[in-house]
Simulated scan of single mutants.
Amino acid sequence: MAVRLLCYEVADLCLGKPPLRSLSASATVADALAALKSSDDNYISVWSCDHSSKRNNNNNNNQECLCVGKLCMVDIICYLCRDENLMSPSLALNSPLSVLLSNVKALVRHVEPSSSLLEAIDLILQGAQNLVVPIKSNITINSKRKQLQKSSSITPTIHNGQEFCWLTQEDVIRFLLSSIGLFSPIPTLSIDALGIITHEFAFVDYHSPASSAIGLISRALTDQTSVAVVDEGGILIGEISPFTLSCCDETVGPAIMTLSAGDLMAYIDCGGPPEDMVRVVEERLKERNLEGMLEELYNVNSNSSSEDEELLSPTTTLSRPGRYSRSTSSSARMVRRAEAIVCHPWSSLVAVMIQAIAHRLNYVWVIEEDCSLVGIVTFANMLEVFRENLECMV
């Protein structure tokens, strides 16, 4: 019966998905910052297009429009925390987007709507985070052009009359969960028995400087995981998650450079940073002669807010330093943002799938009864199990 899953195509998983919003590869970091703040999405797609008249006369127009990457607020925050950018964040923001695009190849891959479910899973297991899929457009070119005139930095991805959406690991996992009974008894087995617990993971000590985790945060963003915060006994205290940081603004950079990992968790938790912690950050920046960094970022934040006021949705407002709020539809986490989502080695595969999906995460931490950290389970780990079972049906 499960063989019917092999008949599904990528287009079936894209039904109802909205068209991507895009940014030109020729834009600046500041453009990306403004685009992210004016969108309800945590990520923005970056495109390289050649619309020269000669190329547009051939039969493969869309081949000249390629999604070359994706960006989120974490990319900008980590970039601003580089030593060479600490003294002059405003200058760093004028850099081209190429400084942010990941060196890791194939994080985004173009696929045809007719591609099979198996092909999509294979690409994800090869390292693709997002599959870019052409979709039919119900909006005319003229109406799109009006929108392009309204927004110069962020636009719908309409290329030679073609719109695109993208497919994520979460989309595929949700689709498989809807037919989970077809894989019985695999979903009821424990994640330990299935051997899908990854025992190598990024972690930082609770009392360590948060700045020591910048490289780990960047890697976690690429791997779609997180950085665990543990005590000296290996007990999981919380996490510094790219998911959480993507909901902050660029002014969280100074906090990363001055606070401990434990204090940073409190700084980025729900509701924005405590006022006393904001003062601590300011004092420590002065001690390091970096007070200009915070002032510049606040000015950038203020200017960005006024310039993009027309682009912001009615539910979008700028809040206290270190955080900006958007429509809550982009996040379904019902816990404090620095609190890690956990399971146990004996948890079933289907239980962990539901847990991750419910919190809009691509991973779940695995702990023992005493809260000692064992490892992490990711969507990629889960997809390996389903791929092996689908292989038997081919």
Rank of each mutant, 00 (worst) to 15 (best):
K144V: 07
C371N: 14
I196K: 02
V99Y: 06
Q355E: 10
S45C: 09
I256F: 15
L71N: 09
E295A: 08
C81I: 04
L349A: 07
W346K: 15
L15G: 02
N389L: 09
N160A: 11
N42H: 10
P185E: 05
T315R: 10
S260F: 12
S137D: 11
Y363V: 08
E84G: 01
N299Y: 00
S190R: 11
N299K: 02
L167Q: 05
K70R: 14
L236A: 09
E391I: 08
V278I: 13
M393W: 14
A92K: 00
K286Y: 05
C65W: 15
V204L: 12
P242G: 08
V350T: 12
R4W: 10
L311T: 03
P96M: 14
L36K: 10
I76E: 02
V99K: 05
Y324R: 15
V364R: 06
V281T: 07
L311H: 15
C65R: 07
A92N: 01
M334T: 12
A213K: 01
E388M: 08
K105G: 06
L107N: 09
W47T: 00
L148I: 14
S45M: 11
E339Q: 13
L148D: 15
S211M: 13
W365P: 02
R4T: 13
G238L: 10
C165Q: 06
T155C: 11
Y206P: 03
M382Q: 11
P314G: 14
C67Y: 10
A210M: 12
K144I: 04
I237L: 15
D263T: 04
S53Y: 12
S304L: 14
M265T: 14
Y324L: 12
R219W: 09
G69M: 11
E388D: 12
D50A: 01
R288N: 13
T258P: 00
C371R: 13
V104R: 15
S48T: 04
S348Y: 12
L361M: 11
V252Q: 01
L167P: 05
L290F: 07
L216S: 13
I135W: 04
L182K: 05
R145K: 06
